[in-house]
Design a protein around this nucleic acid. Structure first.
Lengths: 225, 225
DNA sequence: TGTACATCAGTGAACGCGCGTTCACTGATGTAC
DNA sequence: TGTACATCAGTGAACGCGCGTTCACTGATGTAC
């Protein structure tokens, strides 16, 4: 490992500070508040100076989404790993509750990842964070593998993209045709209530959304057993 | 019914045109593209002239959200009514598929209703469309009533807001404590996959999202039966 | 250890843009006699 | 039917703002001899 020069270190620190301030601005005033000028102002710099670190505003935002998504995925993986094995159903519940907890702790981050909330932002063609998205899918797939019982009524291979199929195969080679659909359906299920909650659509109606969510997860694993 | 004066008619037409253009701008370039100046430009008017029709930008946006949400709810209600009665399970499927179809046909509208995508927009304290949201919940509640079997493990009255409880009571007076939670859980379930699809998170992986969604609905009603 | 040069982070000013909102006004449309 | 007045939709110009991006430049930090 080559040791960093002083200049390299300062440069890396400044880059981190830009991202940290962008995240703080987002957390305070929503994703729309991320602007190069605001960040520069916050850092006591000139707006143009940011261009020494990021070639473009959209590039910065793509980086933020990628890092946030990666942080979320890391959190999900460690939540499952950092707990004694208590059966496949419990692991799904653990995973999903970690998802909700991260989302509740980082609502703007959740929106940045899953909505399209920065006006004028154009993500790269593969999407801003394809790697993290795949990791999330793969992680969920591996949790769901022991709970998968093919019963033939859930769709065909041809419905699903070859890329994802290969990704899933990397986790588990003897994957069934409808397994991908199964995984995405569960993903949709754990996503739905969290999305409603984050966007305030349960807000006034439910006093304890965590409890509601847990009830739904109980119902989910009951259906899988 | 009092007949409209010429002036009143022109005024109403212009108001409708403003809203229609705002919806078109949103559909073309996303919710962030809604601006008074763009609308005025499109109408061949001066920006200031809009203030003869809406007191404020946020007021216009609130109106748009309310009307979109009302249109969605109307669509859901007529989808269920406009089909011969074929059992409670089939009605849920019909309702949910109408939800998805509306969302796919109006993705930006779906985002305007369920995300928070207009930067700087501050909704009124009760939310932009409380009436439509209640109607949606009430409608779903009435569909779910015949499928509700209390089994005591799903939560307590105290978790839910009195307002919603009363609303549900208006639909059905002998409502069970956990019924509200049950309704919201189902709402989250039908919402999840649609939200992922609209935001492009299934895009590259699933060839026929409608089929995936249908499979999930089949699984849902199977669990309810 | 000291000097000459290269690197490069950050400045400051500008360009051109779009935005919401206000306001004194013009001129057409309607109303009252 | 014609005139005098009131209404009111829309103008046009301005205010003040924030934005992304570019560019010639300064001045400090590093490197080579």
């Amino acid at each position: 490992v080559r040791t960093q020069s002083r200049r390299e270190r300062l440069r890396a620190e400044a880059t981190e500070e830009i991202k940290a301030i962008a995240l703080r601005l987002m957390a305070e005033d929503g994703p729309g508040a991320i602007s190069l000028r605001a960040i520069a102002r916050e850092m006591g710099m000139t707006a143009g100076a940011i261009y020494g670190y990021f070639p473009t505003r959209d590039d910065l935002i793509t980086t933020l989404i990628r890092e946030l998504y990666t942080a979320l995925v890391g959190r999900l993986e460690s939540a499952v790993v950092g707990r004694p094995y208590d059966g496949p159903a419990e692991r799904i519940v653990t995973w999903a509750e970690a998802l909700r907890e991260w989302a509740v702790a980082n609502p703007q981050g959740f929106q940045l990842i899953y909505d399209a909330p920065v006006p004028g932002y154009r993500p790269p063609p593969e999407g801003p964070a394809p790697e993290a998205e795949r990791r999330l899918c793969a992680g969920l797939s591996s949790l769901l593998t022991p709970l998968w019982r093919p019963d033939g009524e859930q769709g065909e291979w041809e419905d699903f993209d070859r890329g994802l199929a290969d990704q899933v195969r990397a986790v588990r080679t003897d994957v069934e045709p409808a397994f991908v659909g199964f995984v995405l359906r569960i993903w949709g299920r754990v996503h739905g209530l969290v999305s409603l909650e984050i966007h305030g659509h349960l807000g006034r109606q439910v006093r304890d959304p965590a409890k509601l969510y847990r009830a739904d997860l109980r119902d989910l694993v009951k259906g899988l057993a």
